[in-house]
Every structure is written in C-alpha cells, then in structure tokens.
Amino acid sequence: LRTVEMKKGPTDSLGISIAGGVGSPLGDVPIFIAMMHPTGVAAQTQKLRVGDRIVTICGTSTEGMTHTQAVNLLKNASGSIEMQV
C-alpha cells in the first residue's frame, strides 16, 4: 500500500474516473482508478496510476462501498485528501 496526499480546492477537480464497488456493472469488485485526466489534481501528484485500487479515501475504507458512495466521497472532499492505494 502507498499513501498519496493531494490538495484540492473547492472548485478543483481530482481528474479521475473510478470503477467498481458493490453492485457495479463489473460485479462486486474493489474500487479502482479507471481513467485520469492529465491536468487533474491526481495526475499532478505523479503518484497515482490507472488501475490503482483505492483502499481508503480520507481514512474511510472503500470495502463494501457502492460506486455512488465512493464518487460522492471523492466529489465532496476538499482541502487535504489522503488516499491509500
């Protein structure tokens, strides 16, 4: 596991798309980074990659989380965001 910290302002975009989660079209698979926009906050860290499994978001485990719950957690996060992948 590695921990990645990002700074995100209220109008900034992380610039990632995620897939997976409980009840997702892919089945109940762990949440992972499906796409990254090169100008997004996540890409700027140069520490995240497409395919990385997201284990925690700001200390909250993604295990058993639906896709929608994970998306909302990421969208609503601002300031210092910590992810374990």
Rank of each mutant, 00 (worst) to 15 (best):
L74T: 01
M6S: 04
V22C: 07
T66E: 07
I81L: 08
P30M: 00
L48K: 04
A34C: 10
A43T: 04
G9P: 06
E63Q: 13
G79E: 10
E63M: 09
T56G: 09
L26T: 10
S61I: 01
S13Q: 14
G64Q: 09
V85W: 00
S61L: 06
G20S: 04
V50D: 02
I57A: 05
V29Y: 08
D52Q: 07
G40H: 05
S24D: 04
L26V: 10
I31T: 05
G51H: 05
R2E: 11
V22D: 05
S24M: 00
S78C: 12
H37S: 14
R49A: 13
I54Q: 05
V41K: 08
A70I: 01
F32H: 14
G51Q: 03
I16M: 14
G59Q: 05
V41H: 06
G51S: 04
I16A: 02
L14P: 02
E82D: 09
I81W: 02
G23S: 07
M83C: 07
V71E: 15
I16T: 01
R2C: 11
S80G: 08
K75Y: 11
K75G: 10
E63C: 09
N76E: 12
Q69V: 06
P30L: 00
T45V: 03
N76R: 12
V55P: 04
M35E: 15
V50N: 07
T39Q: 15
I54V: 11
K75E: 15
P10V: 11
V22P: 07
T11R: 14
D52I: 01
V55N: 06
T62N: 05
G27F: 06
Q46F: 05
P30Q: 06
R53V: 13
K7P: 03
L73S: 06
E82L: 09
N72T: 12
T66P: 05
G27V: 00
M65D: 03
L14D: 00
V85K: 00
V41I: 15
M35K: 15
T68L: 12
S13K: 14
G15P: 03
A19T: 08
M83F: 10
T11E: 15
V85L: 05
L26G: 11
Q46G: 15
T60E: 14
A43E: 05
V29S: 09
A70E: 01
M35W: 15
K7D: 12
D28G: 03
A19V: 07
L74C: 06
F32M: 09
S61H: 10
I16P: 00
G64S: 09
Q69R: 09
R49N: 14
D52M: 08
G23P: 03
G40E: 03
V50R: 04
K47M: 12
D28K: 06
M83V: 13
K8F: 14
G20Q: 05
I81T: 02
S24Y: 08
H67N: 14
R53F: 09
T60G: 03
H37E: 15
P25N: 08
T62G: 01
S24A: 03
A19Y: 01
M36I: 14
T66Q: 06
I16V: 07
E63W: 06
T45F: 02
M6K: 01
S13A: 13
M35I: 09
L1M: 12
H37V: 10
G23E: 05
Q84P: 04
G64W: 04
G23T: 04
I33G: 02
L1F: 12
S24C: 06
H37F: 07
S61R: 10
D12R: 07
K75S: 13
E63H: 12
Q84W: 05
K7S: 10
M35P: 05
L48A: 04
G59V: 01
A70V: 11
T39N: 15
G20P: 00
K7A: 09
H67M: 12
P30K: 00
V85G: 03
A43K: 06
L74R: 02
T3A: 05
I16S: 00
A43V: 06
A70L: 01
G64D: 08
V41D: 01
T62W: 01
T11C: 10
D52F: 04
T66I: 02
A77F: 08
T60K: 15
D28H: 07
V22H: 09
H67D: 10
S61P: 14
R49L: 10
K75D: 15
A34K: 13
A34H: 11
L73M: 13
Q84T: 14
S13I: 12
T11L: 13
I81M: 07
P25A: 12
N76I: 08
I33M: 04
Q46D: 12
H37D: 15
G64Y: 06
M65C: 03
G9W: 04
T62D: 01
E5Y: 15
T62A: 05
K47N: 10
Q69T: 13
V41F: 06
T68W: 11
L1T: 10
E82K: 14
V71C: 14
G21R: 01
D12T: 09
M36C: 03
Q84M: 07
S24W: 10
T56K: 14
N76M: 11
V85H: 00
F32N: 05
Q84N: 00
C58Y: 03
Q46E: 12
E5D: 10
T39C: 12
